[in-house]
């Protein structure tokens, strides 16, 4: 992968009244990568995107995009950016085709170039049969897709995606991730993607920056981040009948005693002992004469991951009860 830094952010801060939405944030994005900006709701992700795209002035810090400062040369920088805001916001009364065409006009494309590009994008995003449909009449998932297509009309060097899959059903989100990967790989577009979904960051991003309460915390490759936050695994188990109260007392289980919610048990275990815990679970279920009808294993949730990282960053803070 090319390694020139295309976005440079140093000491970026922004307050809304007394709220510090961004507090001395620094990071770099390398050309050609998918950069994940990962954080829970309210972390400051959208605020960061807005500042980088020239929608919001910053209070302090330096932002350089392709060597230019958007505060000084907004038109030149914006010409190189494609932006997909957190809400799909194309023109509801215009057809899909006309939306792409109009944005092409705003970015200075010739008529022929607009036509060719719109046709190509409708094809890539599987929207060709919707080209005469007004944007407002599309489903949520299709709106999202067209909004991304629209951000690519002028073949930008950098694509900003603000929580692209939030609110989509699982298949739509999956298809969208594949498209994002394709855009990055085939066209070499640098992607700046925000998400609150650790899984998504891991599946999609080459490099991840975690942000929490306006502060940039851990950063690293997706695998590095995953290793830092997967000390613990969670297990969700549902049996088809009542089980003895102590069934969960298997070797390797480390968490507090679980309580069932709607017949579903939630357990926590150390990552490397998952295999052992599962084996014992099966044995116990067999002995009690019940069957496991649903089982879900997952990483620690993001909230816990952030807490873990926060505690690493701030030694000396009080322990979790």
């Amino acid at each position: 992968m090319a390694s020139a830094n295309i976005i440079h952010v140093t000491g970026l801060s922004k307050s809304f009244g007394s709220l510090k939405a961004l507090d001395n944030v620094s990071f770099v994005v390398r050309q050609g990568e998918i950069f994940g900006y990962l954080g829970p709701n309210g972390a400051g992700k959208t605020t960061t995107i807005k500042i980088l795209c020239g929608l919001l002035p910053r209070q302090s810090g330096e932002v350089s995009i392709g060597g230019l400062d958007i505060a000084e040369e907004p038109v030149r920088v914006k010409q190189r950016l494609g932006v997909v805001p957190d809400e799909s916001n194309l023109y509801p009364e215009l057809t899909c085709l006309r939306n792409l065409d109009y944005l092409g006009e705003l970015y200075g494309l010739s008529r022929a170039a607009r036509r060719a590009r719109a046709t190509e994008l409708l094809g890539i995003f599987d929207l060709t049969d919707k080209k005469a449909t007004p944007f407002g009449a599309l489903s949520r998932g299709l709106k999202r897709r067209l909004t991304i297509a629209a951000a690519l009309v002028h073949a930008p060097e950098i694509l900003f995606l603000d929580e692209p899959t939030t609110g989509l059903d699982v298949p739509s989100a999956k298809a969208l991730r594949a498209l994002i990967q394709r855009i990055n790989q085939q066209d070499g577009v640098t992607v700046f993607l925000t998400t609150h979904n650790l899984f998504e960051a891991e599946a999609l991003c080459h490099y991840v920056q975690i942000i929490h309460k306006g502060q940039a915390l851990a950063a690293g490759t997706a695998q590095e981040i995953r290793q830092r936050v997967t000390g613990r695994k969670t297990l969700e188990v549902t049996f088809d009948g009542p089980v003895p109260g102590d069934w969960w007392q298997v070797p390797g289980y480390r968490g507090r005693p679980p309580a069932p919610v709607n017949g579903r048990w939630h357990l926590e275990t150390a990552g490397q002992e998952l295999h052992q815990v599962l084996a014992f679970l099966l044995v116990r279920a067999e002995a009690a004469g019940v069957k496991i009808i649903d089982l879900e294993a997952g990483g620690a949730n993001l909230e816990e991951a952030f807490l873990a990282i926060l505690q690493e960053q701030r030694p000396g803070k009080e322990e979790n009860p």
Binding site: C53, G54, L55, P74, V75, R76, K78, Q79, L81, V83, P85, E87, N89, L90, Y91, P92, L103, L106, Y107, G108
Partner: peptide, 11 residues
């Protein structure tokens, strides 16, 4: 409709 933002994002 939020579409005014489109103009602000454009060059």
């Amino acid at each position: 409709a939020g579409t005014f933002q489109r103009l602000l994002l454009a060059p």
